[in-house]
């Protein structure tokens, strides 16, 4: 033991020296924040003036107006259909894409391009993809469905791939040793290990698709969002409130259902 009590002749380096670069970067970040607030013209007067407008909007929103319920219901049903179709198609495709992207099952020359494709699917916000699809396939639900299929693949295929990469390979080895075919190995050694996680990811993604299906309509890709946007433009704020309440009810209803689904699996 080197004696702790012994005085060493030379002073040792402090292992936690001040890093002037890091301190400088923090300072630059702080200056930039102050500059941005000034550049945007944000001050207290602007904030209080804004609150006044909000007060005006809220007073015109209440009471919500459900008199045009047929229009509301039509949008709601379309949104629900977009969410269901895009989730089923997207999750089904993701099962295969996820497997192709799993580096423990696929050689690099397959998994790397597939991973690139998944990253591409995830690189744009759904609004931007929706605009692209509205321009390429036209207004309506088809554009919305394609948008959310892409969004689903971008998210779920990656999670599926990661779940597959984390499995125990011992079970795979054992099933392979029985002479099972590749597909049987996937069915008996991989699926049992990842199935419950897949169910969790899928319910989460449906939740996300449900919200997004009420949004894609804003750019003309079908669903309740279109109804919401035109109500905004005509200053029908009481109808807007009705739509918002409907969306909240829809999401809460799914929340209730998904808790049930998770309890089953």
């Amino acid at each position: 033991m080197a004696g702790l009590n012994k005085q060493t002749a030379s002073t040792q380096h402090n292992p936690f020296p001040r890093n002037w670069w890091v301190s400088g970067l923090w300072l630059v970040a702080a200056i930039y924040l102050v500059y941005s607030v000034n550049a945007m013209g944000l001050d207290w007067d602007r904030f209080t003036a804004g609150l006044g407008h909000a007060d005006n909007l809220l007073s015109r929103m209440f009471p919500p107006n459900f008199s045009r319920w047929e229009l509301l219901l039509e949008g709601l049903i379309e949104s629900l259909e977009i969410a269901v179709i895009s989730s089923v198609v997207g999750i089904f495709l993701s099962l295969f894409i996820g497997l192709l992207a799993a580096r423990n099952f696929m050689p690099n020359w397959i998994s790397t391009p597939v991973r690139g494709f998944i990253a591409l699917c995830r690189s744009f916000h759904p609004v931007i993809i929706a605009i692209l699809f509205v321009k390429s396939v036209g207004f309506g639900a088809l554009a919305g469905i394609l948008t959310l299929v892409i969004a689903t693949i971008g998210f779920i295929a990656k999670l599926f791939a990661e779940a597959i990469e984390e499995i125990s390979f011992k079970q795979v080895e054992a099933i392979r040793a029985t002479g099972a075919s590749f597909v049987s190995v996937i069915l008996f050694a991989v699926m049992p290990q990842v199935f419950s996680r897949f169910i969790g990811f899928a319910t989460y993604q449906f939740d996300s698709n449900l919200r997004n299906s009420t949004m894609v309509g804003i750019v003309g890709a079908g669903g309740l969002g279109g109804t919401l946007f035109s109500a905004f433009q005509r200053f029908d704020y009481d109808f807007v409130a009705a739509i918002l309440i409907t969306i909240i009810a829809l999401i809460l209803f799914w929340e209730f259902l998904s808790t049930l689904v998770r309890r089953i699996f």
């Binding site: 125990s168 079970q171 040793a177 029985t178 002479g179």
Partner: peptide, 17 residues
């Protein structure tokens, strides 16, 4: 392979089946 059976040190059962 199907005529060559294998028994493993860590059993390698599919645990969730």
């Amino acid at each position: 392979r199907r005529q060559v059976a294998m028994v493993f040190q860590e059993y390698n059962l599919v645990e969730r089946l």
